[in-house]
Design a protein around this nucleic acid. Sequence first.
DNA 1: TTCGATAACGATAATCGTTATCATTATCAT
DNA 2: ATGATAATGATAACGATTATCGTTATCGAA
Lengths: 127, 127
Amino acid sequence: MVRHSKQRDAIFDNLCSRYDHPTAEDIYFSLKPAIPALSLATVYRNLSQLESDGKIIRIESAGTARYDGNINLHYHLSCINCGGVFDVFMDNDCGLCRKASEVFNGKIIGHSVLFTGYCSACSKQVG
Amino acid sequence: MVRHSKQRDAIFDNLCSRYDHPTAEDIYFSLKPAIPALSLATVYRNLSQLESDGKIIRIESAGTARYDGNINLHYHLSCINCGGVFDVFMDNDCGLCRKASEVFNGKIIGHSVLFTGYCSACSKQVG
DNA sequence: TTCGATAACGATAATCGTTATCATTATCAT
DNA sequence: ATGATAATGATAACGATTATCGTTATCGAA
């Protein structure tokens, strides 16, 4: 049985209102002023729950996990310079799963793509 | 200045001779009988070094990092059932980087693809 | 509208993967 | 052979995440 909670709503709303793919800690510090009693454990708990409910997406970047409130299929780029994670929206999924299903002897359900390179800002400065 | 070491050779050879995308610990336990004095720190150290030398690939799966001695472009599938990571070889990369470069306002250098689903063995049993 | 079962919370200890430290050992140019 | 120092092994430290546990909040039933 699942109950309503202010904290879970706040965490979900916070994540959905931003596009920087925050870590659990980012969300925690972002909500702390509005909910001073908030515990970091609650953030982790609810992010896990929201993810297994399919309401948010977990992005596995090196070290710390990041989260995304946009559950429509899209890809990400991890910037070598600033460490940020950015959205890469592509018209279609390139038939990646279909092509993979042709060559892979198992059952493919989903996929994620992580590009590496430089984000817009960093590519102007550095690379 | 880089020096030769028995441990690094053993770690690299071990990784290249297997196709199960082992974790640092997997490699450690695999080599321990042959090199009883081997330290887990040495395995981590050398895996990091080999990776930054471009001799091996690090796969970011949930929680623990896995390694791959095959540096040719290919993708992976993480099995929902057994947790194993398997190779997915595809004829081409679907022009993924090229297509992404057209829509992304930055500089794309590389990419990784992680499929989720069931491996060959598990798809026969479960899914 | 209270009440009671229990989901969710906050605080914090514990766990796990990985990295840093440091004294010792091995490599290799001289 | 020798000396400088890269690499090692042992282990402490670290950062992210999960587990524990007593308390609080939710919500269906009385």
